[in-house]
């Protein structure tokens, strides 16, 4: 697979490590308590289709990316710096 890195252009997926659902950006406030964190830590959607997910450019510039991928076709629909996504307030 090739991932369109927003800073570095098309990069081979071998340079990245995969983490999973980009919902991991939405870490709850400690006040959410055990229930809120249990959802965050353990529950993930596993959609057949468009999925936003976290990839780490470990063999590259160490950027964490939010990659939008169709899990059925492996088509990559976009990639953003996770930092920008987080600062923009949506994940």
């Amino acid at each position: 697979m090739l991932i369109p890195h927003p800073l570095l252009g098309l990069r081979d997926a071998q340079e990245f490590t995969y983490l999973g659902d980009a919902a991991l950006l939405n870490r709850p406030d400690p006040a959410a308590g055990e229930a809120g964190f249990a959802d965050y830590v353990y529950l993930r959607d596993n959609p057949a289709g468009v999925h936003r997910e976290l990839w780490f450019h470990e063999q590259g510039d160490r950027s964490w990316l939010v990659v939008t991928r169709n899990t059925l076709t492996h088509e990559i629909l976009g990639a953003e710096l996770a930092r920008d996504v987080k600062l923009g307030g949506t994940a």
């Binding site: 490590t17 983490l19 991991l24 950006l25 870490r27 976290l54 780490f56 470990e58 160490r62 950027s63 964490w64 710096l81 996770a82 930092r83 987080k86 600062l87």
Partner: peptide, 14 residues
């Protein structure tokens, strides 16, 4: 190191 980068970029980029 990867986890700390995750925390820095994805959890608390501010």
């Amino acid at each position: 190191f990867q986890r700390m980068e995750f925390a820095r970029q994805c959890l608390w980029p501010e």
